[in-house]
Write a protein that binds this DNA or RNA. Structure first.
Lengths: 219, 219
DNA sequence: ATGCAGTAGTTAGAAGTTATAACGGTAATG
DNA sequence: CATTACCGTTATAACTTCTAACTACTGCAT
């Protein structure tokens, strides 16, 4: 499906993808703010303004990168969820898949869930990826009965439109949400290097957090 | 103590502080990457290169800002901890004080615990502020007996050099750590706008997370 | 095959940015 | 009072994004 279209369009897609590859490379070196259309163009053997035939401006490139990264996250989460059969193990499978991906692609992770950069953030199709992630989590916790009710459940019972038409009970919404925020808490601090200078293993901290959410479900 | 020194030094400090004020202002508008020494100089009524008498380069300014922000965080946390007497309420007091500050100063928060920007991050005195935060948390959880032991405790028992000479037991280290990562998980996603488009109240999610850590301590 | 339209690339240039260099004036100090 | 250290200035180099104007190629229809 990605190779349809006349040769011109195909070439166009090819160039765009090459630009994005180089952009990721540059992001890895200098961070998102250090990305330069000009430098990318030079590396591709053409003059600066040529790239403006492919991306209206820097922001459009960034937006595209964010969209791609978010799609990758959604893929990682949903394939991890699909791969694990045992409902009780699914959360851990998802969590570790996400962390593994994040450690391998820290910049992609931060582009999606890190500090928002004014100008380039939240492309429209992003909501679709976000929903895919949330759906995977809701599917997962829907199958695990909550070990108890929490005050938050009541609130979520009447504020659940973000879950779409998903039939998961409030307690599952709650655990999906806290599962997300807890994973993010550890992963983002780890990626940001906030644990450097400490000797403990972030993975063990992460595992404890996963276990903590699991404890909120019946076993 | 901040007003010591000869008039020259005082003037110098005054200018530096004015530069930083304008820098924060600019960060609030255009984000950390959009900060410009040139623009700041113009706003102060002087020519661009003049500022280089006060900051060697952009990175040094950024580094200074990060250091200040981290100090503010440490202040917020430790004063909140000192203000609340009841040990059982202290964690909540700290948490809500931190969240309140973060909501009021999102850019400062992100500069400290957000996406690391290659070049300007982790000034040396930052470790001091980090330790102040950690100490406040350890003091807090040291006074609350853990409701049970977790596998992570064992690991932390032998990897606790980041806690300095603090006498808190491993279970307190564990709760301090997860308290931090959980607060950060909710706060950073909220500040990043990841909850926009949802109608639930982030504060209630945050409160639930605080309660969750409290549940890991005896009441 | 011919001709036309759309696309892709080029250079030139405006308006920014960081940062250095070289030069003046000023202010505190010996 | 003279010297030294500091502060601010302009000029410049090397970047950046992005627009404008022009050229050349490619593919399609007649």
């Amino acid at each position: 499906m990605t190779e349809s279209g006349n040769p011109r369009e195909r070439y166009r897609r090819q160039v765009r993808s090459e630009v994005k590859d180089l952009a990721w490379q540059q992001i890895a070196e200098t961070g998102a703010s250090g990305i330069s259309l000009n430098a990318i163009a030079k590396k591709m053997g053409m003059s600066g303004p040529a790239l403006y035939r492919y991306f209206a401006n820097r922001d459009e490139l960034m937006t595209d990168l964010i969209g791609d990264a978010y799609r990758e996250i959604a893929d990682v989460v949903s394939t991890a969820a699909a791969a694990e059969q045992d409902p009780a193990v699914k959360p851990a499978a998802i969590a570790h898949a996400l962390r593994r991906w994040a450690l391998a692609q820290p910049h992609r992770y931060f582009l999606v869930w890190g500090t928002p950069v004014p100008g380039y953030a939240a492309p429209p199709e992003t909501v679709h990826s976000a929903r895919r992630v949330m759906t995977a989590l809701l599917d997962t916790f829907e199958r695990l009965r909550a070990s108890d009710e929490r005050p938050l459940d009541e609130h979520l019972a009447t504020h659940r439109e973000w879950a779409g038409e998903h039939p998961a009970p409030p307690s599952a919404l709650r655990r999906a949400l806290t599962f997300w925020t807890r994973m993010h808490g550890v992963i983002s601090l780890e990626l940001a290097g906030q644990f450097t200078g400490t000797s403990f293993d972030p993975e063990q901290l992460f595992a404890e957090e996963v276990a903590a959410v699991l404890r909120e479900s019946e076993r």
